[in-house]
Amino acid sequence: MRVRKSLEDWGLDSFVVIVLLLTIVVTLYPFYYILIITFNTGTDTTNGGMYFWPRDFTLENYVYFLDDPKWIKALGMSLLRTIVGTAMGVLFTAMVAYGLSKRDLVFRKGYFIVIVVAMNFSGGLIAYYVVLRSLGLINTFGVYVIPGMLNLFFLLIAISFFREIPEELNESARIDGASEYRIFARIILPVSMPLIATMCLFIGSGHWNAWLDSAYFVQDEGLRTLTYRMMQVINQSMVASSSDAALSIMSRSKVTPFSVQATAMIVSIIPILGVYPFLQKHFVSGMMLGSVKG
């Protein structure tokens, strides 16, 4: 039976629709504005007054970006860091969580105390630098992926998730002669895809967007990441317009530091947009599981 809406219902629904439309516009327009900047000449963009479409269409920003070996190397380094760092972080965090989820684990409470202390207290940047230097990670690719192999936040979520997996699955596998590593790889991981997908998305996004470690712990230009290069452009655009960096770019073409920065932003968004649709189903399930399991 169809229920007729009252005038108040129509008014409330209209208000909700208007608010949602305004939210969508406010959320999506900044991305759209950056996109049209990348297709407009940089020198023309500095004149302002461009809001909905490119005023002086060009592909020169993308050509400059792709022709610059520094940007390409930085993009490749970010991709490599994200892939390796995500794989190592998800695998190592899941393995540690699987072990800590066992209620008969020796010194289990002591491990949890260490985890809680580590989540709430830090030795600071100097102590962190000294540790990295003592491990020989300074100015190496390992400084990107090794310190983040254990994610404490997802460690607690994974422990809670693994506890909910029926122990009968593990016991039946042990009866068949399977080792703990085989049980983890063949039973635990396949039934934990919502958790794994959620961890991949968040840990991967963290690696893709990180730039502080590249600025503080790396001096080799070949190890610089895309986000670090973007921060360089931001810093260059904040200095006087007569700076050598700005003049060297503008003298060769109509590209400006800001247009290159916008182009790098669009390029950096593409991998996330390409991966998210494949993880969306598991990601939503993982977020719900993480919110109800304690």
Rank of each mutant, 00 (worst) to 15 (best):
residue 291 S to H: 02
residue 50 M to H: 03
residue 70 K to S: 13
residue 100 L to V: 03
residue 91 L to W: 08
residue 82 T to H: 01
residue 208 W to T: 02
residue 109 K to C: 01
residue 45 T to A: 13
residue 180 E to W: 07
residue 155 L to D: 03
residue 188 I to H: 04
residue 152 L to E: 09
residue 157 I to H: 01
residue 42 G to F: 11
residue 161 F to K: 03
residue 56 D to T: 13
residue 255 V to H: 13
residue 280 Q to R: 13
residue 36 I to Y: 05
residue 148 G to H: 03
residue 80 L to E: 00
residue 198 T to A: 02
residue 48 G to A: 11
residue 204 G to S: 03
residue 80 L to K: 00
residue 78 S to M: 02
residue 68 D to N: 15
residue 15 F to N: 06
residue 14 S to R: 14
residue 202 F to G: 00
residue 163 R to F: 01
residue 211 W to N: 05
residue 18 I to T: 13
residue 46 T to A: 14
residue 193 M to G: 06
residue 163 R to E: 08
residue 112 F to N: 01
residue 181 Y to P: 00
residue 40 N to E: 05
residue 258 F to K: 13
residue 294 G to K: 05
residue 170 N to V: 10
residue 32 Y to H: 07
residue 51 Y to H: 08
residue 158 A to R: 02
residue 71 W to M: 14
residue 240 A to T: 12
residue 232 Q to C: 05
residue 67 D to G: 15
residue 37 I to G: 11
residue 148 G to A: 08
residue 155 L to P: 04
residue 207 H to Q: 05
residue 1 M to T: 01
residue 51 Y to G: 02
residue 120 N to M: 15
residue 227 T to K: 07
residue 15 F to H: 00
residue 72 I to M: 14
residue 20 L to A: 15
residue 217 F to K: 04
residue 57 F to M: 10
residue 1 M to N: 05
residue 269 I to K: 00
residue 49 G to C: 09
residue 15 F to G: 11
residue 63 V to M: 12
residue 149 M to C: 08
residue 99 G to W: 06
residue 275 V to D: 05
residue 198 T to M: 09
residue 230 M to Y: 07
residue 188 I to Q: 05
residue 162 F to E: 01
residue 26 V to W: 03
residue 71 W to D: 10
residue 67 D to E: 15
residue 58 T to A: 12
residue 75 L to T: 08
residue 211 W to G: 10
residue 6 S to V: 09
residue 168 E to G: 09
residue 220 D to M: 01
residue 106 V to R: 10
residue 101 S to G: 07
residue 208 W to Q: 00
residue 221 E to K: 12
residue 98 Y to A: 04
residue 281 K to C: 02
residue 112 F to V: 03
residue 13 D to G: 06
residue 133 R to M: 07
residue 90 V to C: 05
residue 114 V to P: 02
residue 66 L to H: 00
residue 157 I to V: 09
residue 3 V to Y: 13
residue 64 Y to N: 09
residue 97 A to G: 08
residue 85 G to C: 02
residue 239 V to D: 05
residue 145 V to A: 01
residue 11 G to I: 14
residue 213 D to I: 11
residue 91 L to A: 11
residue 188 I to N: 05
residue 46 T to G: 10
residue 69 P to L: 09
residue 184 F to G: 03
residue 277 P to R: 03
residue 238 M to R: 06
residue 126 I to E: 12
